[in-house]
């Protein structure tokens, strides 16, 4: 058991590169996450945000560089093992199981666990956090609204008891009021001690909530800093918040 230094990052990417065949999508990035943080990764379409997230979750593999989690190198570890180690991904476009019911979707989140009593307790906690979801337990998940589906996807990820939650554009395609709700949920998750890495296009909202943030542009990290600093950075404001510089 390696000694866990509280100051050591929970997750660390060093010179991480990711390629789809010949195309380099991520061209060597450094990224760190500390326990209990909410960090967001913002940037334009095609900047490599989702790719980075998938590489951390293990659904994609690095083509170069290092990835360490809780002190050990995990590059090359398959996705299902990373989940057992505590890295849970809520994929882009929600990725719920449309033909299963809401309850089955949530229970699938505990697929890797066998502690029945604890699972029931966790389910109860998720229901409390997401009252809308509780009302819809027997409903087929494909018939839910976008916001509800997103809630189910987050709830499902929480049922694996993650240490690190990776959220891929949870606000995509949702009405502002629903997006606010989702961010409330994220706040609760953070309070429970889960570290969150958030990929967002809605930079204004993401930066406002984040401890720190990274800005990605064509496969590279161009800026990083605290959420508030970046929110007031003129370059960020002109590039991502639609303001003339």
């Amino acid at each position: 058991m390696p000694h866990e230094n509280p100051a050591a990052p929970l997750l660390q990417l060093r010179d991480a590169r990711i390629a789809y065949g010949q195309i380099q999508a991520v061209k060597g990035i450094d990224l760190e996450l500390f326990s209990g943080e909410l960090v967001s990764l913002i940037g334009a379409n095609g900047a490599g945000k989702t790719t980075t997230l998938n590489a951390i979750a293990g659904t994609l593999q690095l083509s170069g560089g290092e990835l360490s989690y809780a002190g050990s190198a995990i590059a090359g570890m398959p996705a299902h093992k990373r989940l057992r180690a505590g890295i849970a991904l809520v994929p882009e476009g929600r990725g719920i199981f449309t033909r299963l019911t809401v309850e089955e979707n949530l229970r699938m989140g505990a697929y890797t666990r066998s502690d029945k009593a604890e699972i029931e307790a966790d389910l109860e906690r998720v229901y409390e956090m997401l009252p809308r979801v509780r009302e819809r337990l027997p409903q087929v998940a494909g018939t839910l609204s976008g916001g509800e589906q997103q809630m189910v996807a987050i709830g499902r990820a929480l049922l694996s008891r993650p240490k690190l939650l990776l959220l891929d554009e949870p606000s995509m395609g949702l009405a502002p009021l629903i997006v606010e709700k989702i961010f409330e949920v994220i706040q609760i998750v953070i309070k429970q001690g889960v570290t969150v890495l958030l990929v967002e296009q809605n930079a204004n909202l993401a930066l406002g909530f984040s401890n720190r943030a990274y800005v990605m542009e064509s496969g590279k990290i161009t800026l990083s800093g605290s959420g508030q600093d970046l929110l007031h950075d003129p370059k960020v404001r002109s590039a991502y918040l639609g303001e003339a510089a």
Partner: peptide, 18 residues
């Protein structure tokens, strides 16, 4: 249940540890 998950969304199935 794992097959049902793969059928509905393979990426999400991977992401829940299947």
């Amino acid at each position: 249940r794992a097959w049902a998950a793969i059928r509905d969304d393979e990426l999400a199935a991977k992401a829940i540890g299947i």
